[in-house]
Design a protein around this nucleic acid. Structure first.
Length: 292
DNA sequence: TTCCGTCAAGTCGAT
DNA sequence: ATCGACTTGACGGAA
């Protein structure tokens, strides 16, 4: 297992070329049991291939794609379809134990627990239920976190954070796996710390550079209790790009800055680079050349 | 086989 | 007003 000053690495969802992916899906108008099973079975098979690849690269963490079971939280998805999927997942959970790899998830931007719209909130909760269910069936423990953002500003940060907090209180089950990440626009690490949420904080280094704030590394680490923190690292793309866009690669310098903050602590770091495992390999080559 | 318009969902800011 | 950014581009019909 690769470990650099306590930091373990991982990538997410698919290979760079997209040929191996846990996010296979189809158009909603084609939603049938057969299509769901076809996509799910391929996703599950590729999940194992991605675990093998992660293992061979020395990774200690992998992010499973949210489309593993396509449309699982959609109203048109029939509950009875879950039965055979559940069987396959439980079957796979035995093999999953052979991998010393932490599995986590990060649902889409549609999960907005701070939204004042009742419908947005209920759809978000359904989607989170699906994520938790999937990790439960896979036999993943509490280290299998589900990462979300606070969401929009609406009428102001205070109100949004208040609603976010209220949902966490009312839906106690969320605290079992839910964790919250700083974003590149609104909610800084400091905002999240000051909100005193009952869940851990995911430090995203790129977001922090775009939307900085003051905090002590220990403050963030201590939100994780006895669990190993999951943090994120990516780099700015070369050339013209839109604000917040992630680069193909992770720059060595960005990793070194991250190390200065959290090196020596036990942290799982997901590289959110578009080049996926290739970015991880490139970064490893680059840091090896300077003797790390 | 390749190409390109389209796809469940939220929210925001850049253009 | 529209587009496209976010954790991830893949599907599906046309050429």
């Amino acid at each position: 297992m690769l470990e650099i000053e306590g930091i373990r690495l991982g990538f997410f969802c698919s290979t760079q070329d997209g040929k191996v992916t846990t996010n296979r899906k189809f158009h909603l108008k084609n939603l049938t049991f057969e299509r769901v099973m076809e996509a799910f079975e391929k996703n599950l098979r590729d999940f194992e291939l991605l675990l093998d690849l992660s293992l061979s690269l020395g990774c200690g963490v992998f992010r499973l794609g949210s489309d593993m079971v396509p449309f699982a939280s959609h109203p048109n998805f029939k509950r009875e379809w879950l039965r055979p999927i559940e069987e396959a997942l439980v079957g796979f959970s035995r093999r999953l134990k052979d991998y010393p790899i932490r599995i986590t998830m990060h649902p889409g931007q549609f999960v907005v627990l701070s939204s004042p719209k009742e419908q947005v909130l209920s759809a978000s909760l359904r989607e989170l239920e699906y994520h938790f269910w999937l990790l439960d069936r896979l036999g993943v423990g509490r280290e299998g976190v589900v990462v979300v953002h606070v969401g929009g500003l609406f009428e102001g940060k205070e109100g949004a954070l208040k609603r976010f907090k209220k949902v966490l209180k009312e839906q106690g089950w969320l605290t079992e796996r839910l964790v919250v990440e700083n974003d590149e626009r609104h909610y800084t690490v400091e905002d999240l710390l000051r909100a005193e949420l009952p869940i851990p904080i995911v430090y995203d280094h790129y977001h922090h550079t775009l939307n900085p704030s003051n905090f002590q590394p220990d403050e963030v680490l201590s939100t994780w209790g006895d669990r190993v923190p999951e943090f994120h690292l990516s780099s700015k793309p070369e050339g013209r790009h839109r604000f917040g866009e992630h680069g193909e690669w992770v720059k060595r310098e960005d990793f070194l800055v991250f190390l200065r903050l959290f090196g020596g602590r036990r942290v799982d770091l997901i590289l959110e680079a578009k080049a996926k495992e290739k970015a991880l390999q490139r970064l490893l080559t680059e840091i090896k050349s300077i003797g790390l």
